[in-house]
Design a protein around this nucleic acid. Sequence first.
DNA 1: ACCTAGCGTTAACAAGTGTTAACGAGTGTT
DNA 2: AACACTCGTTAACACTTGTTAACGCTAGGT
Lengths: 224, 224
Amino acid sequence: MSNNIKILLAEDEPSLGQIIKESLEIRNFEVILCVNGEEAYKKYESENPNLLVLDVMMPIKDGFTLAKEIRQENTNIPILFLTAKSQIKDVVEGFEIGGNDYLKKPFSMEELIVRINALLKRQKNKDTPFNIGNYLFDLQKQTLELNSNVEKLTHREAQLLWHLHKKRNQTLDRSFILKKLWGDDDFFNARSMDVFISKLRKKLKDDESIQIINVRGFGYKMIC
Amino acid sequence: MSNNIKILLAEDEPSLGQIIKESLEIRNFEVILCVNGEEAYKKYESENPNLLVLDVMMPIKDGFTLAKEIRQENTNIPILFLTAKSQIKDVVEGFEIGGNDYLKKPFSMEELIVRINALLKRQKNKDTPFNIGNYLFDLQKQTLELNSNVEKLTHREAQLLWHLHKKRNQTLDRSFILKKLWGDDDFFNARSMDVFISKLRKKLKDDESIQIINVRGFGYKMIC
DNA sequence: ACCTAGCGTTAACAAGTGTTAACGAGTGTT
DNA sequence: AACACTCGTTAACACTTGTTAACGCTAGGT
């Protein structure tokens, strides 16, 4: 029985493609095998897969080109590259395009499975609500829930809170967060961010175990 | 016996046109062969075909011009271009006009069949109703059904909802959708789109798991 | 030709969101 | 203590988006 996770596999070497496909199917993944980038793009469109495993070197359309196209319309889907070339340059290019991980050939099936599971888990983590203190925080829905009292957050508030929580109990650098969320670290954005910190503190005040502490000159630290 | 699928073929070179026509008829497609764009337009109007195969270079009216005209009144029908010119420029132009695929001459009949079937399958996928939350959404019929309660959507509503769903759980860029559905990103179209978002929210309000969230300055995100 | 219903656009106002300003409080330095 | 600087907080503001209704166009019916 399928675990409901659909993997799009693009690999031009038939025997390798088949081996990977079967190995994954044994683990209850649903696998769509394509032999080139163009076919893979069409299947991506029609099948709506959860994860992409792309060989970099393929005829007609290579994995990088394909990934670039898909990233334009889907910034979310995890992409794992398979690369025969072991040069660092390629790996860097892959990450720049928006690949989430890569695997050098030859690789063991176990390695592949581990990485796929890691990517899926990361994906799931992003989508699944989690607790911050006694609050339940849902990034997707942009909500904070406490005692079945649901408070809506704005997009900025939610993003900021997510980053604070990701680095909870560590100092989150002002400049880092400004560049990440505001795009630029300047005076006004910095003040704007302070306002948002203030708003978050207010919205989180019903659980005293959560605190957003200022580290003068460096940033903020959320303890929880 | 026909499989009930009607293909409009526009190809000015008589012998090639005839060969393609017969090859397709062997595969049980119904084929209407035209020798120029003007004739093809008339046949398109009267015959209501399921798919267009258009030669780009034709006398009187070329394939691109024809496709542009037809796209204005039908954004749905799959269009496959046959092009003798192999320049990328043409292919790009073709896709911008709204072509769904292209085939460089010379091509094998097998290639053509594969592409036609792929387009038809994709079309079929588009035509098949699917679930959005607990609703059943039918793009073709422009309906939303919940608990056997059928709500009609207008064309714009249906198109917008389809795009939101296609990129569900991702932010759909305002500008992208405006260009795609309204043709241009200007103030009034943007306001019009906001109105439609409002209408969709109202029509989707009976399933709370579906939400259309605004991402200020960027667009909308449908979560479901 | 006229009427009508349906649809998409435009207008108008309400609500929401992020930025900026202003002022006060806190912190470390001299 | 005086000072410079950073941060906290509130409110005003500008801008974006939400919502409703009026409007005009078009296709189909009479």
